[in-house]
């Protein structure tokens, strides 16, 4: 999967004039006010901006987790709004990997079970789930923790488990919301190395939301959001 983008191929993700409005009346709030953005295959893109500027909102829209109030998101040139729910679900399941702002690990379940959740959702047989789960944990140096309760891991280990979970379905695109936000500099650095390594080796497209300048600097490209608008680096 180390294909470099063919010239003229449509971008993996394309956002056109996205607006997102929360609430109504007095509490009406425009989190995004017309954002247009292309994400090219295989690149790493950093979305930066101050807290509350709308970074997570934009990422959720790009990842088809939410629907924009106006505007459109295209996946490989195809409009997502017109696709049936079932197709969107499959798309997220098979082509996207998620690293959310919090870990979202199920505390009482084992590390292996947490990691193989996307495969469970996909309907993969139990044996293969275990097999693939162990392989991915192995590659992240967590094989010996597979049977442990997710709750019993350290913060950095948890974050690596979360990344293992995002990788297990061999996605095209990984969305990572503040992947190093909860970690100290050293572990944060390790997690960054991991993500960029994957991007390079497997040609995975990386969309990273962060307010960490160092992390943003390591990305191929960065867009800065302020008050729901792109103020720098739309790149189109």
């Amino acid at each position: 999967m180390t294909t470099s983008p063919a010239p003229g191929a449509p971008p993996v993700l394309s956002a056109q004039a996205l607006t997102k409005t929360y609430g109504s009346g007095q509490s009406r709030f425009e989190a995004l006010r017309g954002v247009s953005l292309d994400v090219r295959r295989g690149e790493s893109l950093a979305i930066v901006g101050k807290s509350g500027s709308g970074k997570s909102t934009l990422m959720h829209l790009l990842a088809l987790l939410d629907r924009p109030t106006a505007g459109a998101v295209e996946i490989d040139g195809e409009d997502a709004a017109s696709a049936p729910v079932k197709r969107i679900n499959r798309l997220r399941n098979e082509r996207f990997g998620f690293v959310f702002q919090q870990f979202f690990l199920t505390a009482q379940q084992s590390v292996l079970e947490n990691v193989t959740l996307p495969l469970l959702v996909a309907g993969v047989a139990p044996r293969e789930r275990t097999h693939r789960g162990m392989a991915v944990l192995e590659s992240l140096g967590l094989a010996d923790k597979a049977k442990n309760k997710a709750n019993d891991l350290s913060g950095g280990q948890k974050q690596r488990v979360v990344i293992a979970r995002a990788l297990i379905n061999e996605p095209d695109v990984i969305f990572a919301d503040e992947p190093t936000g909860n970690l100290d500099t050293a572990t944060g650095g390790q997690v960054e190395d991991l993500l960029f390594g994957l991007q390079r080796e497997r040609g995975i497209t990386l969309v990273v939301v962060t307010h960490d300048d160092d992390l943003a600097a390591r990305c191929d490209r960065r867009v800065t959001i302020a008050d729901g608008l792109i103020v720098e680096g739309a790149g189109r």
């Binding site: 990842a63 987790l65 729910v85 079932k86 969107i88 679900n89 499959r90 798309l91 997220r92 399941n93 098979e94 998620f98 959310f100 979202f104 199920t106 959740l117 996307p118 959702v121 996909a122």
Partner: peptide, 16 residues
Amino acid sequence: TREIGLMKAMGMSNGK
């Protein structure tokens, strides 16, 4: 709640 949200984010259908 979060677990449900996570599973749905990962493409689990409402029916399931």
